[in-house]
Amino acid sequence: MMGGLEAAVAGASSPSWSQRVRAGRDLASFADVPEAAEALVGLLLDVEDAAVTRQTAEALARAGTVAAVRLIALAAAEADDHQTDWLQTGVHDALVEPDDVLDLAAVCRQLARDPNEAVRRGAAEISAWAVGAKC
């Protein structure tokens, strides 16, 4: 792994919520790298601080890649109600500035054909959030 990526992956397990938030932001552009993806899902499902969940979801939604949104979908399929609320808030935060976000609905349509049922289920949920954010 590269130095910056390695440091961000290490930051994902920090006891400091602010370091975990920073790790989520730093790792979002590496969503297609297995080590980063694993750390990002952990941050999306952070049980200690909702800010970590929210800001990691926002960073991934802003990245807007299929790999990034797929991680949000995986987390949404596993999340409890509290985590789901913060995942949704993070996605909504990213949609406030649509210039920086790919069309999440189009990405979710791609993920609707994913072989993993949890990804398909999570993508449907994200798609509903994106529609709700535009209303």
Rank of each mutant, 00 (worst) to 15 (best):
E48Q: 13
E48S: 11
D49G: 13
D49Q: 12
A50E: 00
A50K: 13
A51C: 09
T53M: 12
T53Y: 11
T53G: 08
R54Y: 11
R54N: 09
Q55T: 08
Q55G: 09
Q55L: 15
Q55E: 15
Q55A: 10
T56Q: 15
A57F: 14
A57G: 10
A57V: 03
E58F: 09
E58Q: 14
A59P: 04
A59F: 13
A59Y: 14
A61H: 12
R62P: 00
A63P: 02
A63L: 06
A63D: 15
G64S: 11
G64V: 09
T65L: 05
T65D: 03
T65R: 10
V66I: 07
V66L: 03
V66N: 05
A67Y: 08
A67C: 08
A67F: 15
A68C: 11
A68P: 03
A68D: 07
R70Y: 00
R70S: 07
I72N: 02
A73I: 06
A73F: 01
A73W: 04
A73K: 04
L74K: 14
L74N: 08
A75N: 01
A75C: 05
A76I: 01
A76T: 01
A77V: 00
A77E: 03
A77H: 04
E78G: 15
E78T: 05
A79F: 01
